[in-house]
Design a protein around this nucleic acid. Structure first.
Lengths: 143, 143
DNA sequence: TCTCCTATGTATAAGCG
DNA sequence: TCGCTTATACATAGGAG
């Protein structure tokens, strides 16, 4: 495009390269906007030039984080590193702990105990009697 | 470009939109490759079409994670740290839930009740008696 | 570097099979 | 829904200020 055809390979002349970068950067940003408007596409475009300056375009309908979330789901690749996996694991662990405590609490309150067998009911009764005697002992101190 | 000029606004005819998407997607991917080769640029381009299919281009000299790291440094915005914060908050919430259940469980077992006042002990006793009668009721069914 | 210019190469809208 | 064609609009290389 332009006065002469060019090969697609690194432009050796650095000022030429910079000029071309600047022009094409504008071009591609424009294309990104156009496709997202014309076709309802979610686009995330991030460019770093050789000089280190950044340029970006994210479709107005979304955020980079949304795009990256979709990216992870679509590609199966994981971006957030091991640190995040650890946090997720911790959350799973806590949720399980929560659930089992929830169940134990309900049992101690006499709820959801239809599924328990006789032995389990005995153990529950013991625990409750134990608790009760402890509580009554403490109560007695108030007199 | 093409037989007729078009306005840059959402293409209402959906099959037309899909065709245009497909063509322009190829075009922009090509441009992304070209600028990264010609100008030594680091490019990250992620596109989701309305159909949900993903297309991406990442400069061969880099990785998406590198680009995102640079993005965070250059823009000052946080990406996975935001995600990280969400996870941390979730963990805090679960831990608090856990702790209060832990305490309730201990109380029901007659532990750590020295700090309770008389009224609280009464409530605890009621709860335990309630639980106990529920359990005994169920136990009775076995005979 | 940036803007403007403009000849040319490319991308693509519309159509056809 | 594709692939192919082609006329046309657009992007841009090279150059000048």
């Amino acid at each position: 495009m332009g006065r002469g055809k060019i090969e697609i390979k690194r432009i050796e002349n650095s000022s030429n390269r910079q000029v071309t970068y600047s022009k094409r950067k504008n071009g591609i940003l424009k294309k990104a906007k156009e496709i997202s408007v014309l076709c309802d596409a979610q686009v995330s475009l991030i460019i770093f030039g050789a000089s280190g300056k950044m340029h970006e375009y994210i479709s107005p309908s979304t955020t980079l984080i949304d795009v990256l979330d979709r990216y992870q789901r679509a590609s199966g690749k994981t971006l957030w590193d091991a640190k995040h996996e650890n946090l997720s694991n911790e959350i799973d662990r806590l949720k399980k702990e929560n659930d089992s405590m929830q169940i134990e609490l309900r049992h101690l309150k006499g709820e959801d105990i239809t599924s328990l067998n006789y032995k389990e009911l005995m153990a529950l009764e013991d625990a409750l009697e134990n608790g009760l005697s402890g509580v009554r002992e403490k109560k007695a101190i108030f007199f």
